[in-house]
Design a protein around this nucleic acid. Structure first.
Lengths: 337, 337
DNA sequence: TTGTACGCGTTATCAC
DNA sequence: GTGATAACGCGTACAA
């Protein structure tokens, strides 16, 4: 099945290829009837411009690279759907890659995308990324990159983030207002901004209510179910359980719930739990998990919009940080009966 | 940041562009030392062949389209990861699209991918797809397409599927062997092969044990949590609960569990539940869900391998159906105490 | 309004 | 072993 080219159409209609081309790019003068004739004939012949040739000619790929740490949890897929919503409308396609939470893989992905000549990149950093030299170099060369959710302070770039501080504050405040006194925080990878922010929100909420936080109230956890299980098992073993737990994210919270239930503790009667980042799981776990809902689709849409803006504008755009808002979904896991 | 081209390298080294090109495509004669010199210099200058030009010249995009119904559940993401494993190695990139379980969207995706000149497509059909004329036309034109999981009988094409019949049979048999007698089956969209197969497995397992299936034992459900909830609520209302339920997939099973628990029924004491298609959720729900594990990554890898095979071979390849194997993960939700 | 001719950056087919 | 040169399919100054 050989592809029909512009030449075939030109030959068929006894016109030059430029005329055909013009009919398809409506920024040129062309008689309306020839234009219509061409479009009609082209459609009949099944012609459409060869994207490869077009890209080569225009020196841009109309493709956007997306790098996420993973897409097994629903968070990143939802963001990607948001991105796709915008980019599809503008005629861009997505090359989606995952870093697997691995900095080397991430760098390799970036280089692959770069050499694929994507017009821009939307990225959420892996949890272990520290070396940002290469990214910064791209940014300095005016290559369009938008960061979302997972960012690093040193990076001078446009980012779409969630107000982690505020909502961690609210989530903690919710527990305090429910009357819980001894509240533990399970943190995530400590280099990530969002973890720092969530931790700070946790601390400042206590400050507001003049509550003490002992050092052992803040425990290094992680992003996965297993992290929650591990940490809570340790607490149970050392007989040092809190009234309530504020986990850095939902999987971690779910791990905590599973471990507690396994040892016969009731939730929220014995220990209340609050998660972060509404996920499909929060409504499946028993009891349903109180958690902070992030505007995942919105994050995607905003990132995509900013990126396309940046791609289209030829001059440098001043980096800015967009902070999106969320919501606290209160469910059984944190309700004092 | 202008890109370095082959010309720049040629000029710098006082060589012709053909020589440079040869150095990068090692199928031609070239003196080893000039070759090394070129590669070294190119690296210093930051040159790499422009993929767009290469693609135009070679008339193939080195990109593969992937169309899935959704990627919010972990099933499709896992398949995609499997696909990526293989394609990345072979230098192909993925254009991932989702049909949103919508036949029109699916067709639009196919056409977009086609006009993007992807070298092939890997697709899992939406649950409502019936009109396969366009796909069949592509296939007849020798365009490489691999179907996985969701297929339609009429389609003459290579497919990678799961042995839905066998494992539905085993899952049902497991319930029967546990001593359950009145077992209901919640089905999925009835046009999909996999739903028909799972239903048949359910029926034949009963036949093997000479158990009757009354018509009302088979209930039209759906693929989502809400479908499970809806159906079970109806059963509760009409006071017609079974001993056990075999659901067409995990979300459906989880919906059933949620509805039952909400009305105070215990699982598995009052009603046992078995799901299908191991998902992240099956281990989060309480009690843990007995379910059939599909080799998601393997499905992806196999599909990718077959597709690449088909892309590389110029002549027609006889359609074949690859059937992959699974495993029954027995957990609490189906264990008679 | 339309046609001619060149360039985009490669690879491939010739000569030399 | 290396260098011209013609494709690949398109957009677009420039000429007509």
């Amino acid at each position: 099945m050989k592809h029909i080219t512009i030449k075939d159409v030109a030959k068929k209609l006894n016109l030059s290829i430029s005329t055909i081309s013009r009919a398809f790019n409506d920024k040129y003068d062309i008689r309306e009837d020839t234009r219509e004739q061409i479009l009609k004939c082209a459609k009949e012949m099944g012609y459409y411009p060869n994207p490869m040739a077009k890209k080569l000619q225009q020196q841009c790929s109309y493709q956007i690279g997306v790098i996420v740490p993973e897409f097994l949890n629903s968070f990143f897929p939802e963001v990607i759907i948001g991105i796709q919503e915008i980019t599809a409308k503008e005629g861009y396609q997505l090359l989606i890659m995952q870093s697997n939470e691995n900095a080397d893989q991430e760098l390799a992905n970036i280089k692959t995308l770069e050499s694929s000549m994507v017009d821009g990149i939307i990225i959420s950093l892996s949890k272990e990324t520290k070396d940002i030299a290469y990214l910064q170099e791209l940014l300095d060369n005016n290559f369009p990159i938008i960061f979302f959710n997972r960012t690093i302070s040193e990076l001078k770039a446009t980012a779409v983030v969630f107000d982690d501080y505020k909502w961690a504050f609210f989530a903690t405040e919710h527990l305090i207002q429910q009357g819980y006194k001894k509240i533990f925080h399970l943190t995530g990878p400590k280099d990530l901004n969002l973890c720092k922010k969530r931790k700070q929100g946790f601390i400042d909420a206590h400050r507001k209510y003049n509550l003490d936080i002992k050092p052992e109230y803040i425990i290094e956890g992680g992003f996965f179910i297993d992290d929650g299980i591990r940490v809570v098992n340790e607490l149970i073993k050392t007989n040092n359980l809190p009234d309530a737990i504020f986990a850095v994210n939902d999987p971690s919270a779910i791990g905590a719930i599973k471990a507690l239930k396994k040892h016969g503790f009731r939730i929220p009667e014995d220990v209340a739990i609050v998660g972060f980042t509404e996920s499909r799981l929060s409504d499946v776990i028993d009891p349903p998990l109180t958690t902070v809902m992030q505007p995942t689709f919105e994050i995607g849409r905003t990132s995509a919009q900013l990126l396309i803006e940046q791609i289209k504008s030829k001059h440098q755009i001043e980096p800015k940080t967009i902070v999106l808002n969320g919501k606290l979904n209160i469910r059984e896991s944190s309700l004092k009966s």
